[in-house]
């Protein structure tokens, strides 16, 4: 957070005073993208939505954003091992493991209004609550484990004014540890790229 404050101060000093955000302080934005977990889970579609409030702080450049997003990457493999044995004949069976994650993220986002021509870049970070559900399918059966834990995310993006709001492109990384029997104790976090439209209210 110290780094974020420094960044904000630097941005305040550098930004032309005329480049102020206009419009209401509340915004909402649906977003869609592609996510790739840092584990062996495959890439997946990312869906999310955010509600933000542009605070009067730092010349209305600091926003608080609450985001809820969803993704369900999966991986597949083969069950094999010394305990899978039928009188000396090895037994193998395919399996699929999916890790559904619903993230509730609260981020402080600092915006640089029209710092790049019409574009408004922004950066942000914050904590999140990550709800995990790992589902495994093997031997024609389905089993799952559910749990949740804290994590954090950092993000950066750029918004282009369009109509009553702005279209944006955003990149994000989040860290979320999960420790299920099927997954093991790993960081189920991911990097993602998303497109969305932010509507100012």
């Amino acid at each position: 957070m110290n780094a974020l404050a420094l960044l904000a101060a630097a941005a305040l000093a550098a930004a032309p005073s005329s480049n102020k955000d206009t419009g209401g302080p509340v915004f909402i934005a649906p977003k869609v993208g592609f996510i790739k977990p840092v584990t062996s889970l495959g890439g997946d579609l990312f869906l999310g939505g955010e509600v933000g409030y542009l605070t009067p702080l730092l010349q209305r450049r600091l926003a608080l954003v609450l985001e809820v997003n969803y993704h369900r990457p999966s991986t597949s493999g083969t069950l094999r091992g010394p305990q899978l044995d039928n009188l000396g004949q090895p037994i193998e069976s395919p399996y699929t493991l999916a890790e559904r994650e619903v993230a509730i993220q609260l981020s402080a986002v600092f915006r640089f209004p029209r710092a790049l021509g019409p574009l408004t870049p922004y950066v942000g970070a914050g904590p999140g609550l990550y709800l995990h559900r790992a589902t495994v399918e093997s031997f024609d059966s389905t089993a799952s484990e559910s749990g949740s834990g804290p994590g954090f995310q950092v993000l950066a993006g750029a918004e282009l004014p369009l109509g009553p709001g702005g279209a944006f492109l955003e990149a994000k990384y989040h860290f979320a540890r999960v420790d299920f029997l099927t997954t093991g104790d790993v960081n189920a976090g991911a990097v993602l790229a998303a497109l969305g439209y932010r509507l100012r209210l």
Binding site: T75, G77, L84, F139
Partner: peptide, 14 residues
Amino acid sequence: TPVPRDALTDSPSV
């Protein structure tokens, strides 16, 4: 029903 164990780690098992 066996299931994969630690499937996302470097040492998966059953």
